Simulated scan of single mutants.
Amino acid sequence: MSGFVFGEKPIQVASGDGVHVYDESGTEYLDAGASYACAPVGHCHPAVVDAVESQASDLLFVQGSYPTETRTALYDRLADLAPGGVENVWLCNSGTEANEAALKFARHATGRETVVAAKRAFHGRTLGALAATWKQQYREGFAVPGNVEFVDYGDADALAEAVDEETAAVLLEPVQGEGGVNPAPEGYLQAARDACDDAGAALVFDEIQTGLGRTGSLWACEQAGVEPDALTVAKGLGSGLPVGATLVADWIAEDAGDHGSTFSGGPVPCAAALATLDVLEDEGLAANAADVGDYLRAGLSALDVRDVRGEGLMVGVEVKRGANRALRALALEHEILALPAGRTVVRLLPPLTVDERHADRVVAALDDVL
């Protein structure tokens, strides 16, 4: 069990409402970070718990080369939910694996090696994904492979200039998460689409943090009306169980090369993912994220802060005196768990089940802390 970062008492249990967790002394914390967006339907949602328990009692695991009912169902469900034509699904265990697969598939399908990524991007910590991750502290000492060109996020002209006949893929987050919660400027994702079309490169959207209703629609790219050639998803897909996916268009799937994983599409994570997707749809959580997100950002904008930005329930609050101090005070003085996004940004990624009462509590606490 991981220790609770702000104190000596580890988190022990989650509450029935899904938005709170408790330490061993019984102190209740509002989880406004959802463990880096890994609990979109709340902690221990009954439907997810039931699905996991049922599957675990039936079949815990079988290798990926044997078809199973749950894996096939998840393939079909993700294909049905995919934006545009990215209906070919490969399952994995994490976001970084999903991005690794997307980069491998794009390179093989195009016969090219260069990747264009954005400054301040975060795509994972394995070597391929790490190569497209901007922050030097993650890269230092690991002999990260080259063939990645970084451009300023949001600069459409710089992006267009960087993409050429040697570009295999453009890899972008529709809203940067780790880099400071930076939404794409209007027209930027379309400019990326145009640049890829002109050069014959693959446009890959990393929706590992933005997907599954977080920004107010199932996929953030839908709000911009832009269809990628590949899309990656993980984090909240299994409500905390390790499962991710790479969705690709036909032209990539037809020449994706050789790839695989022993644990790809394990029965229990697939059951959790199917139940999570059911809850997201049945409870209208994307719409709730849009509504409560607007309400939360409006309240935060009245505070003495440098900036409030984001989409839906993916919110960044840029503070004046550093994020870590604010995060510690939120946890110890107000029993609210939040996250950093760089040195000066408090990141809020609560379960999509939160309501205006929870938003009011977060705003009041930040007002007091700041």
Score class of each variant (00 low, 15 high):
Ser261His: 06
Gly316His: 04
Tyr66Pro: 00
Thr215Gln: 05
Ile208Tyr: 00
Glu281Gln: 12
Glu173Arg: 00
Thr96Ile: 02
Val5Leu: 15
Thr126Trp: 01
Lys235Trp: 01
Ala82Met: 07
Asp250Val: 01
Asn288Pro: 05
Thr68Val: 11
Trp134Pro: 00
Ser94Arg: 01
Asp368Val: 08
Ser54Trp: 04
Tyr295Asp: 13
Pro67Glu: 14
Pro174Met: 03
Glu335Asn: 15
Ala47Thr: 14
Thr210Asp: 12
Ala286Gly: 08
Ala47Leu: 09
Ala51Asp: 08
Ala298His: 13
Val226Trp: 01
Pro40Ser: 12
Ala129Leu: 06
Gln209Ser: 10
Asn324Thr: 02
Ala201Tyr: 02
Ser25Lys: 08
Thr68Arg: 03
Ala202Cys: 10
Ala132Leu: 00
Thr276Glu: 11
Val226Leu: 06
Asp76His: 12
Gly3His: 14
Val86Gln: 03
Asp355Gln: 13
Glu186Trp: 02
Leu231Gly: 01
Pro183Ala: 08
Val175Met: 09
Ala220Asn: 10
Thr167Leu: 11
Thr96Ser: 07
Ala14Phe: 07
Pro83Arg: 08
Leu366Ile: 09
Leu366Pro: 05
Gly111Ser: 05
Glu283Phe: 07
Leu212Pro: 04
Val148His: 00
Val204His: 00
Gln176Glu: 09
Ser264Glu: 10
Ala192Trp: 05
Glu254His: 06
Ala79Cys: 13
Ser25Val: 05
Glu161Ile: 01
Gly266Val: 04
